[in-house]
Design a binder for these strands. Structure first.
Lengths: 220, 220
DNA sequence: TAGATTGTTAATCGATTAACAATC
DNA sequence: TAGATTGTTAATCGATTAACAATC
């Protein structure tokens, strides 16, 4: 009943739980405890139960959770029971990969157009859709009611593509280009930086190799 | 002098600062204040200064930071002044995109091999490298001292590829396949889930459309 | 010296975790 | 009733932020 504010950290884990529930269902597991689901999702069970408690009370004490039912409740909470038309701009290798990515064309999301500025690519078929001119963006957004745009262009083009998206009425943008985007307050941008993750790994790897707890590898 | 533990949240932002510093340098800006750098990175300046204070004292009060010098210090902290040989497994569209991704072949990282199980792809040239059989993994890891492996295979293959990587001595894995990986304690896995981000956007978008502060859109 | 801006302090806020009462 | 497991409480931990003393 209450449109409770769900903590941001919890929201970020809901997709992980959803994936774990799907994996359980594929293994024909119909019921699970918080312990089992937490293991499948790679978190600890106290955190999982706390997270789920923000959505409501969808388990049964002494028994556990009905996998199918919990999956539905999480999907509904995220908004995946609605239809989300998506447009992808920049159909290089990454855009191509995204267009084919199962998570982008399943449950809730529907890629309605692939746009690229390169005229020589127009008409080319990718993931069952023809690549179309970037200039058609506004018309496509209007026609399909697109609320989410994905940017997979080179960094140099990203801000200008972003501006066009905002101008066309898109208020949620997923940015794969390695550049910070300026947007009006009401627009939500999420940045996925492929190389950041690699750098974070390198940081930890370096710590492993170098000093154990009590500095080591210091030349005499 | 002290090998201070840098907070995880700070580590995750260092790549962002690095990118912002690179952008400033490209614009021929040699000096910046915490305020300017924070804007370029998309964070607030108090957080930036707090983050940088964990690395050391690399600014000048009343003046700001030397862009080049700060960039070097952050690079060194992350470990990018070392050479990190990387191997990518699974050369579909995503693997292809990663192989060409600038962040993967610049400053510190060096892709030494692209592997795929599909024999029909072997020998194909991608980003200047020939695709090689997955069976050569162990030999390549040994030869080049690979410490970081990237998985860009379909979900079904990911765990088995991961096991082979661990067996070959890789201790840091970046996983783009949508599946949770089981690894020994000493192995570090980071998961990049392309569709999670889309789902998080959808959640917020849904909130925007539906209820303002005082529930709305409730049918009478 | 006056102005600017860092690096640090301390207060606040949010997230995690263990423990357990509620209850199936 | 006994056993199991949720949902919640409360304590701990870590991250964020504003404010300002230090200092260039």
């Amino acid at each position: 009943m209450s449109p409770t504010r769900i903590p941001e950290a919890t929201v970020a884990r809901l997709p992980v739980y959803l994936r774990a529930l799907n994996a359980l269902l594929e293994g024909d597991i119909r019921t699970c405890s918080s312990e089992e689901l937490a293991t499948a999702a790679g978190v600890n069970s106290a955190k999982l139960r706390k997270d789920l408690s923000h959505l409501g009370s969808y388990g049964t004490r002494g028994v556990g959770y009905d996998v199918e039912y919990l999956r539905y409740q999480i999907s509904r909470e995220i908004g995946l029971t609605q239809d989300w038309p998506v447009v992808i701009v920049g159909i290089g290798n990454l855009g191509h990969a995204l267009a084919n990515y199962s998570g982008f064309s399943s449950r809730g999301f529907r890629t309605v157009a692939l746009l690229d500025a390169d005229t020589s690519r127009h008409g080319e078929l990718v993931a069952g859709l023809q690549i179309r001119p970037f200039t058609e963006l506004a018309a496509i957004v209007r026609e399909h009611g697109v609320a989410i745009g994905v940017i997979a262009t080179p960094a140099a083009a990203a801000q200008s593509v972003c501006d066009s998206m905002v101008g066309a009425g898109i208020r949620s943008i997923l940015n794969f280009a390695p550049s910070v985007l300026s947007v009006p307050e009401e627009v939500d941008v999420r940045m996925v930086d492929l190389s950041s993750e690699l750098q974070i790994l390198a940081y930890h790897e370096q710590r492993k190799s170098n000093g154990g707890p009590d500095l080591e590898g210091v030349p005499a």
